[in-house]
Design a binder for these strands. Structure first.
Lengths: 324, 324
DNA sequence: GGATCACTTTGACAATTGTCAGCCCTGCGT
DNA sequence: ACGCAGGGCTGACAATTGTCAAAGTGATCC
């Protein structure tokens, strides 16, 4: 393979770059395939092959202009009403909740790299949404970015543990990754406290304090919420917190409608970032979608954790309506 | 217009954003136009219209991956041989000199925004090549970038004066623009000196010292060079400088094969940046192409003014051959 | 009301692009 | 030499996409 002699249109252009030549003519010069095939003296079918190869190798970048999603009316309304730095509102038209979630995740993934600068430390939460964002991020080379896992790992049956979320995110961003090698929840608060004092864990938790940006989703307090199915909280815990006024979940912590953390038993059992650390970040990126997330999102925003939001048309409208 | 009631598929998605919806489905979800027309419940022809509108409005960004041009063999060879930070080598295959120049200009225009950061001050030289680059830059919003005109204005018959080059560049980059409101060459050195002392001109010249990046082309010393046809130098001047060893022209100044400025009468007549100010920049972007530019480019590189190069395949090869 | 205007939408047709089986080289093993 | 394998190229056909003139639709002004 390596030194196999390729022919590729002998006597023509330097050989390997004929693919690029074709791609340039097609996408930059605006020639059609027939014209290109004439110039290159190959059949049009070959030009098709070249173009496909160019696309397959990722030479061609096609993207929708981000301004479209941050600039339109709903996005501006969100920004003004909630005092955000920016909002990214995607068309969700007619899709199922599932499809909408994927779109929102993809939108966040497209937007995220432009929110990061060299030297940044990005905290990554966990959950289905965050996982899909991590997966959807296009491989790019972000110089000097560090990704940190915001909460410990859990036994979610779906494969989107906090570890995997942060690892994939770092992988696709070409960033360094600091994982938190501990469970998110321990049955014994004493053990949890001891673990927090372990030098390795302690260092990792310290690192979290230095994050200047974070990406997270808002979790709902429904009985079928992932916080229960991932065994972070039991049904009993959930009931208790809801009685205390829990409206949403952020990084594994329950918050009330004003976004204030609700102190409770779980705090002592958990290993992960505390919510006060999420205040005052350069970027607090909330990615969530769906009717069930409206109240949690509002709570997170009210708590001041959020500077940027990614969501769909529909959810944006619900947020605005609910807050009017 | 503002409050005119648009119909656009009444009862469907919020109306204006149906274009975005269609674009998303087409480019992100990979659906074809028929599928989209079904989902959106419009005819396929309408979908075509939506997509065209999206493209016309610039919602769709298509670009060739820059790594292709900075990564391939010739670019790496250039970088190593001349100690550059990066080189951008475009396919020039089979084109006329004119077409190659346009490609190189376009390549530079595509690359330039990614070389700029907030706070940068970009010095812009003049000439046919620089003009084409300025024209080819896609309208983007670069926050907090300032463009400075590196040399005074001249009576070129072709419309690419230094003023126009820098103004268009700033325009398309969405940057501020500092023009140099003075002729590049004055017949009287005393007058030139006086003009340099004028507060406005002086301030503008001072601003040039603060540029941290610059874009320029290498000019040749042929009798049909633009430096002559634009009346910056006379034929007699040119002859004299060539006799002194002039190999190229950079920002209106003659340099020898080692890139050293050749002191001469013209210096006192000129208003514009001096070459020592171009040393040690974060980015010195040389954009040039063609056989006649090979020697001037080598001279500019030898002089240490250049950190980044944009050129074609063919010229890159000539540079490497000539320097081997 | 109805004529007009500016606009979007549409169906039928034209052009462009994608697919695929088979050909034609070249290198390699027998 | 010969046959084989594999990659690249091609022509004919299929699918997708673009064009354009005509028709529809609400708003606005007699």
């Amino acid at each position: 393979m390596a030194n196999a002699t390729r022919r590729r249109n002998v006597g023509q252009i330097s050989g390997e770059s004929i693919v690029i030549e074709a791609a340039w003519m097609y996408y930059n010069d605006g020639l059609n395939q027939s014209e290109i095939s004439q110039k290159l003296k190959v059949s049009r079918a070959t030009v098709v092959n070249y173009l496909q190869e160019a696309r397959a190798r990722g030479y061609i970048r096609i993207s929708l202009a981000p301004e479209v999603f941050t600039g339109h009316q709903l996005a501006q309304d969100l920004r003004e009403k909630f005092g955000l730095k920016a909002a990214f509102v995607l068309p969700g038209g007619n899709c199922s909740e599932e499809e909408r979630l994927m779109r929102v995740a993809r939108g966040a993934a497209d937007w995220l790299p432009s929110l990061l600068n060299p030297g940044d430390r990005l905290g990554v939460a966990w959950g289905r949404t965050v996982y899909e964002v991590a997966e959807a991020v296009e491989q790019v080379k972000m110089d000097d970015v560090t990704v940190s896992q915001l909460v410990g790992s859990m036994a979610t049956p779906y494969g989107f543990t906090a570890e995997i979320c942060s690892a994939h995110m770092a992988q696709n961003l070409g960033a360094k990754c600091i994982n938190l090698h501990a469970p998110a929840v321990l049955s014994d608060p004493v053990l949890a406290a001891k673990l927090r004092q372990e030098p390795i864990i302690r260092a990792q938790l310290d690192a979290l304090s230095h994050c200047n940006k974070a990406i997270f989703a808002a979790g709902s307090c429904d009985p079928d919420s992932h916080i229960v199915s991932s065994h972070v909280a039991s049904d009993k815990d959930l009931d208790w917190y809801v009685k205390q006024g829990a409206t949403g979940v952020l990084c594994g912590r329950f918050i009330d409608a004003q976004g204030q953390p609700i102190p409770g038993e779980l705090d002592d059992h958990m290993i992960g970032i505390t919510l006060d650390k999420l205040l005052g970040l350069d970027v607090g990126l909330l990615v969530s979608d769906g009717a069930s997330k409206v109240a949690p999102m509002l709570a997170a925003i009210a708590g001041g954790y959020v500077t940027h939001v990614v969501t769909s048309n529909e959810t944006a409208q619900m947020l605005l309506d609910a807050a009017s």
